[in-house]
Design a protein around this nucleic acid. Structure first.
Lengths: 143, 143
DNA sequence: GTAGGTGCAAATCTTTTGCCGAGCG
DNA sequence: CGCTCGGCAAAAGATTTGCACCTAC
């Protein structure tokens, strides 16, 4: 079974080793934004011998090929996600660490405008909203 | 000579040691967004014995007191800036690494809106624009 | 067969911390 | 004089890398 990421690896001339196949499958089925340790944990379930350094190397390679995107939210490890058809930004639930994706065309348009006004051409951006759930005023532990 | 940051330290009950005075002065005169190594380099010019750990500890303390703000732009070390009267975001010149501050009320308003629509209350945000200068197509070194 | 990939351990880089002597208030 | 600080070195956490062996193509 060949998934989209494996196809992309082929297209970019990456050798399809067993380890990469596993990582590709994990990435293809991930609906969240796992960090390298989490990825390693997941692939380890299927191949307990795969090394953390291999996951690091593979993710770095996939990133430089533009197949995945690295997100460095505040503090801690970098997290990855597939480069999707649609660009989007992130809302991070500061109580649970959950990540919600969103997109707002108007904000994007204003960003271009702001950059131009400052004498620049916008190349990329990063927008993260840190927020707490509205309804439940759960007095949980902080952090 | 007592500057604003020293006054703030007093107000927050921090002891005004020689090292902190130096760091406060460097911060007060900084117009850029230095990282801890750069801060250490600057204070070292006046006191070659000051330790890097001291700068780290001081900056961490100033951050927790809300006197400075930590910025972790893509990759590398964290950078600091004084908490200013006005909140603002950053545009990073990807050719030179220069940081331009800006503020756009409309974008802020839309952010609140987006969060609410997703069922959250916005606590804070981070918006970074990565851009290149418009006019001058300077073929300088990259990075 | 060979260039690229992997495992493993050690190195790097950034930041934090334990310990203890020192100085601010 | 007591409690906070600072220097120093070591630890910790994330990521990278050198090296020798391995394997996809």
């Amino acid at each position: 079974m060949t998934n989209r990421i494996e196809t992309q690896c082929r297209a970019h001339g990456l050798r399809l080793t067993g380890q990469r196949r596993l990582i590709a499958q994990v990435l293809a089925t991930a609906t969240d934004h796992p960090d390298v340790y989490e990825l390693h944990r997941r692939v380890s379930e299927r191949d307990p011998h795969i090394n953390l350094a291999t996951v690091y190397r593979t993710m770095k390679r996939l990133e430089s090929e533009g197949i995945v995107e690295r997100q460095a939210f505040r503090g801690g490890r970098s997290r990855y996600e597939r480069v999707s058809k649609r660009h989007h930004d992130h809302l991070i639930d500061i109580e649970t660490g959950a990540v919600v994706e969103f997109k707002n065309a108007e904000i994007e348009r204003l960003q271009e405008l702001v950059a131009r006004e400052l004498g620049y051409r916008l190349v990329s951006h990063r927008l993260e909203l840190y927020a707490v759930p509205l309804a439940n005023v759960s007095p949980r532990k902080n952090r």
